[in-house]
């Protein structure tokens, strides 16, 4: 156990260093992009005078290192600053969006994870049969299609043709939790379709791998039934890689879903990040990117912790 704590401590430290590096990379790459907030806000209506006036108002006339340092200093004291474009404080804006994103990811995971585990196990049991082939090819098809296309197909079937669900998931402030889940179902189904193939195929492969091992053969010879064999004998040993792939997919559900957000008009963090990058709105870009980077760092750490916990050899070192 001590080893685990040492590992967590080390990883947290490296995580913090990673975040600092990310913030420097983000700030300098936004700076390197053509144009800045002033030209992005004014667009075609820009004149040299208005651009200069706006730059001065926003403090963009200061050198890069000075702007970065001021941002970092404020950030370390817990102040994320205000958005350069609409002068709203960044923290509540990003916080609300991140909560939306987490909810979407959680709901999609709640559909996708049990389903892909179950399908993966079933496909392993009936491997080579028609069920296995059907599941494997249909999940492969879903992962091969671009996300927006999956989204459009889901909209065409469930919203336009059947009329069961709304086609857009724009959220009103006073909406109840159940209504919220209801309007979010289509993007969740889309995301689930997109991430399921990966998890399902890995579950299937890990279990098939184990089914060929001598101890499973032994258990089977002793008369253990198929269900018990899989759940009690094979699955615990397959958990380590499965957990890793699940967590990586969770990370994807949180940071990689901007296309789905756009198609379903869902106010998540990805949309905010894309808008902010195109407007060169650095404080918002920084906050969103650090949340995303932090999510990756944390989830990777969690994956390692859980897979060591799931692995008796790591839990009880000789």
């Amino acid at each position: 156990m001590i080893r685990l704590f040492v590992m967590v401590g080390e990883r947290l430290l490296f995580g913090a260093i990673t975040l600092l590096a990310v913030s420097i990379i983000i700030a300098s790459s936004v700076d390197l992009l053509p144009g800045d907030v002033a030209t992005a806000i004014l667009g075609q209506a820009a004149t040299p005078e208005t651009v200069a006036a706006l730059r001065k108002q926003l403090g963009l006339d200061l050198p890069f290192y000075q702007r970065y340092w001021e941002w970092l200093w404020d950030f370390l004291r817990g102040d994320m600053g205000v958005s350069l474009t609409n002068e709203r404080p960044v923290a509540p804006q990003v916080g609300e969006r991140f909560a939306n994103t987490l909810l979407l990811a959680a709901l999609a995971a709640a559909i996708a994870v049990p389903l892909s585990l179950a399908l993966g196990i079933l496909a392993a049991i009936y491997r080579g049969g028609w069920f296995d082939k059907l599941i494997s090819s249909s999940t492969l098809a879903a992962i091969s299609m671009p996300e927006f296309l999956v989204g459009y197909i889901v909209i065409a079937i469930f919203a336009v043709e059947l009329g069961w669900f709304p086609s857009i998931s724009t959220l009103r402030h006073d909406i109840s939790f159940l209504e919220r889940i209801y309007v979010m179902l289509l993007p969740c189904i889309t995301l689930a379709l997109v991430v399921m193939a990966h998890m399902m195929r890995l579950t299937r492969a890990a279990i098939i791998n184990l089914l060929a091992s001598p101890y499973i053969e032994m258990a089977r010879l002793k008369g253990v039934g198929t269900a018990r064999l899989i759940v009690y004998h094979a699955l615990p040993n397959a958990l380590s890689p499965i957990i890793t792939v699940i967590v990586l997919n969770l990370a994807y559900l949180i940071v990689g879903v901007v296309v789905v957000e756009v198609v379903f008009v869902y106010p998540g963090l990805g949309q905010l990040l894309v808008d902010s990058v195109s407007a060169r709105n650095l404080p918002v870009v920084q906050a969103s990117c650090l949340i995303f980077a932090g999510t990756y760092v944390t989830l990777n750490l969690l994956a390692d912790i859980f897979s060591s916990l799931a692995n008796p050899r790591l839990r009880h070192p000789r």
């Binding site: 336009v160 709304p166 086609s167 198609v263």
Partner: peptide, 18 residues
């Protein structure tokens, strides 16, 4: 006023009465 940037989503929203 609901912001819907994607034209396919906008059209679907009109068709489904949103």
């Amino acid at each position: 006023v609901i912001g819907i940037n994607d034209v396919v989503s906008r059209t679907a929203a009109l068709q489904t009465g949103q």
